[in-house]
Nucleic acid binder design. Structure first.
Lengths: 350, 350
DNA sequence: CACGTCGATGTAATCGATTCCACGGCGTGG
DNA sequence: CCACGCCGTGGAATCGATTACATCGACGTG
């Protein structure tokens, strides 16, 4: 592959001049510029990003470590992150942690070794020593979706508190009183927050949340199935199940079907994270939708701000309830319910 | 960040010795080795992958350019590719082309600039000049899923011919005679192959495939909706619709529902590419499943073979029909139909 | 005892870019 | 007319590693 030296030789100038042309430095004669450009064209020359990075100490690359690529929520997040980064001239390298702390560490380490300019993380688990080092160690970093408490890193996330309250109101309105939740890992912020929001909302309605109605899942479909089976084995099974992510909702649906029960007639089901497929399940699933695209963009913005020396901002965007049919047929809606996804442009910053 | 020089100073040896320890070169004294290792530990030193790549001319990185990350089929492919690559000590950088040739070129160029060791591509469209250059230009390359005819690059893919024949037999057995297909872009191999396989299978049953029953889609949900609406507007709409990928099937389902029609009572639906969600749609969708994980692994194997100087092999794996309920209730099965996913271990190489 | 061999180590070249600095030529103002 | 400054340019240092080659001491052998 042609190097800058070959171009210099071909154009009859020094490598310094070639470099200047390539980085359009002002002081190059028009004549030299055209000769260099011609040589570049003739040789099909492309600058070696590796060499350039070594010299300039920047790779124009962002790392994104997410908990599970197969989860449509994260896929969409990854996509919007890449899009936003590309618009700013950055590439993105995605690391899939598969909800495994060891894999997460592997990817963080690999990305750091590659000297990425900044790191976007949705931590799978509590803080690993490596992650703490990275956070302190100068690598620009931003948490997205999930975060690690006590670490001084900006966070870009959605707040589901209000939406969870709306959901509980919705369930209550439909007559459901025994509500249960399939929680995510307590070590993740999203895992514990959603339970807390649910508990708080139930309290507002004077409803109990017995321990038997809190199932411990791990954000994967299989755990949703397992937990739901436990719920159904209860002497008095819950009337409604709220899954803390979309995959566990899927597992729950499996378990319910396997018993020959029907949603919502026999049991209601709702999920955190809305995804395109929820429209097509039987029945369509009521869910809490995060403004995923906006989250990705905000995260990139914050990270690039840090990288380029501007003060980064934590951002919290509201999630919202999308009512479908999995909790029961809403009686003739008294007020215009938020049935159709109106884009959530609302945004709060902290 | 600490460099090899710092380590050398700390350990009281030269950089050469440090490098030798790090790459466990035999001729290093036990004493030097322990001192270096201690220094590495003390400084938290990690070798700079950028510098290493520049010198060794290898990045231990594979590029993967896929047509659409949001398509669960490709997400799964990407995941299995990353897994297989990691097992062999390679990282993967994913580029999402979003079915746009310009974006595809952008990613190929970026990856090439980064001097990745090899490139896995599922080409969105016909051959761009850039792609041809890359294929000829020495960068090890393997096509996966889709390929570009006439380019001398190994191909790893699934053959759906037999499965499509099974599908047509299934539909025929259920009494469907007017069959239609939502095709993918003719410029992609998967787009045209699936239509041809379908046409051939219909011919075996003496069934026609009028032009009006071939809708032109683009592998995105929206096109599936549009094409299906066209089918339904026909004076004599088809009795069964076969979507050439999972997203278009989703769009088709939308369109059918929007007319107040029901699957499979009013119209049958089947799809190429099986995905977890198809179990949960209303009704569960009959689909042709590719051995995605195996494809990813085979692709990485082939690419790494090329990179490391072994002769790479093209691989073709069979797809298989997974019958669910979207084409109609199968009458009491005369012969044991392939209803339960038995892992396809069968593999043919060329 | 001298010499060849081998193992451990250091010096320095190298990868492909960027960039500081020096230099020559030319225009301009005093 | 001289000096100063600026512009365009090239030489060379530099980034952080790897590795060919040189060196040096110890040891074995004839």
């Amino acid at each position: 592959m042609a190097s800058i030296k070959d171009v210099a030789a071909e154009a009859g100038v020094s490598v310094a001049t070639v470099s200047r042309v390539l980085n359009d430095h002002p002081s190059v004669s028009e004549d030299a510029r055209t000769r260099v450009l011609a040589a570049v064209e003739a040789l099909g020359y492309r600058p070696n990003a590796v060499a350039r990075s070594l010299r300039t100490d920047q790779t124009r690359t962002l790392g994104l470590v997410i908990s599970d690529v197969m989860n449509p929520y994260f896929t969409e997040l990854a996509r919007s992150v890449e899009e936003a980064a590309r618009a700013l001239g950055y590439s993105v390298i995605i690391g899939n942690a598969d909800e495994r702390p060891d894999l997460q560490d592997h990817h963080v380490r690999t990305l750091l070794d590659r000297r990425i300019d900044g790191l976007l993380v949705s931590p799978t688990d509590g803080a690993s020593p490596l992650m703490l080092d990275a956070a302190r160690g100068g690598t620009p970093m931003v948490f997205v979706d999930r975060w690690i408490p006590g670490v001084d890193v900006p966070v870009v996330r959605a707040d589901g508190q209000a939406a969870v309250r709306d959901l509980v109101a919705h369930l209550y309105g439909l007559g459901h009183r025994r509500l249960a939740i399939i929680a995510g890992p307590a070590a993740t912020t999203t895992g514990s927050e959603r339970v807390e929001a649910f508990r708080a909302a139930l309290a507002e309605y004077g409803l109990p949340l017995p321990d038997a109605h809190i199932g411990q899942g791990d954000f994967q479909a299989e755990s949703g199935r397992r937990v739901t089976e436990g719920f159904l084995d209860l002497p008095e099974p819950p009337e409604a199940v709220f899954a803390a992510d979309n995959l566990m909702a899927l597992g729950a649906l499996d378990a319910i079907r396997a018993r020959g029960l029907r949603v919502p007639d026999d049991i209601a089901l709702a999920a955190f994270d809305d995804i395109p497929w929820f429209v097509h399940t039987d029945p369509p699933i009521t869910a809490i939708a995060q403004p995923t695209g906006e989250l990705g963009r905000a995260a990139v913005r914050a990270l690039v701000d840090r990288i380029e020396g501007r003060p980064p901002q934590s951002v919290t965007l509201p999630a919202r309830l999308v009512v479908r049919r999995s909790c029961g047929e809403s009686a003739p809606p008294e007020q215009p319910a938020a049935s159709e996804p109106s884009p959530a442009t609302n945004r709060s910053q902290s």
